[in-house]
Design a protein around this nucleic acid. Structure first.
Lengths: 197, 197
DNA sequence: CGCTGTGAAGCCTTTCACAGCT
DNA sequence: AGCTGTGAAAGGCTTCACAGCG
């Protein structure tokens, strides 16, 4: 167990392990070896062991890892053992799809509301998630102390919208608009959906 | 100019440079230095120069890089100088949003069709992109020699759908379903939309 | 003089093999 | 015997500084 500094690639992989363990847990499999876990995510078993060993000794030699225990530990490490409220800005096609994406809830993100400027959308809902005006959203963000936002607005509105969010106390922004967003003092993750091909 | 082996991080960054250069080009800026380009994407200028130098000598010492020329070169390197037809499998909320996402077209991906099994959706369109049945899609994929697909189907259908695509000759799959997809002999990129926080 | 192109050094991650526990 | 935890070595990427050219 080192814990001096955890490599970023390791953190990304923890996310993958978490998903596999979830499935194993559902299927009632009690124990998994590093080889099996590695195969499931498509990497070498040594990587799995090294990754896990950075946080503690979760395994049993000669046996493997207890699925539920390991899952719980990884969840805790990733901050997935609690629920994080988030807002989605932009109730267009992409924003609505992201709000409905089941993965967020599965990982402990609670999409509290969508926000839009279009009066025709305000007051409606997307699979039970309400679409709010900025006035309503401002109250909610401050009341519920929401710190994270997903941005899915037209390219030309991104920078101004992001600044508004920062002023409201948002600390992490996941930007899906096809524009590189830059902000000081806030954690910004730009996601270019086309970059993966 | 090395070209022995190009680091993956470099390729990811080329995508970013490409976007910035596009904007510069639109604004009519003829020349850009590595410092400016670096600032625009949030990295050190040395990285920019090293990245670009792997493919050739695009810059002029004492001056900088010709925006249009550099943009064209990067496009060519990324295979963005031609149009790639793709299909989106799953015309649900996420699939529709991806089909409508402007970034794909901007980067030379031509979304030819959506595919779904829901009879109520087949025959409709999403912003002008037709929703086809599997029979229709099978013909189109073979006729137009489509080699790439975006997967946005329910978790339980992912593996079977992917196999069907491979059998139809698809060579690259971008999987947005919240399931890790594994296939031999085909390039699969799993995108977990929640991994970024 | 300014900015590119690049070698060399430093740092971080992965790989490998095996000691050590059950 | 089986599988984990980990040190040591290898490999790859980034940083730095500067030579070289316009």
């Amino acid at each position: 167990m080192k814990l001096f500094k955890v490599p970023e690639p390791t953190i990304m992989r923890l996310s993958l392990y978490s998903r596999v363990l979830e499935q194993m847990e559902e299927r009632g499999i009690p124990v998994i070896s590093s080889v099996e876990l590695g195969d499931a995510v498509g990497i070498n078993s040594g990587v799995v062991r090294k990754d896990l060993s950075m946080f503690g000794e979760f395994g049993v030699r000669g046996v493997g890892y207890n699925v539920r225990e390991l899952r719980d530990n990884i969840r805790r490490l990733l901050g997935q053992d609690r629920t994080w409220p988030i807002v989605v800005i932009g109730a267009g096609q992409l924003g609505s799809a992201l709000a409905a994406y089941p993965g967020f809830r599965q990982r402990g993100f609670d999409i509290t509301a969508l926000v839009d400027v279009d009066a025709a959308k305000i007051g409606t809902d997307v699979q039970g998630i309400p679409v709010l005006s900025w006035d309503e959203a401002t109250n909610m963000i401050q009341e519920k102390e929401i710190k994270m936002a997903i941005l899915a607005v037209p390219a030309e509105d991104v920078q101004a919208t992001a600044q508004k969010l920062v002023d409201l106390g948002i600390e992490a922004i996941l930007n899906f608009s096809p524009v590189i967003l830059k902000l000081a003092s806030v954690q910004v993750q730009n996601v270019d959906l086309t970059v993966f091909f």
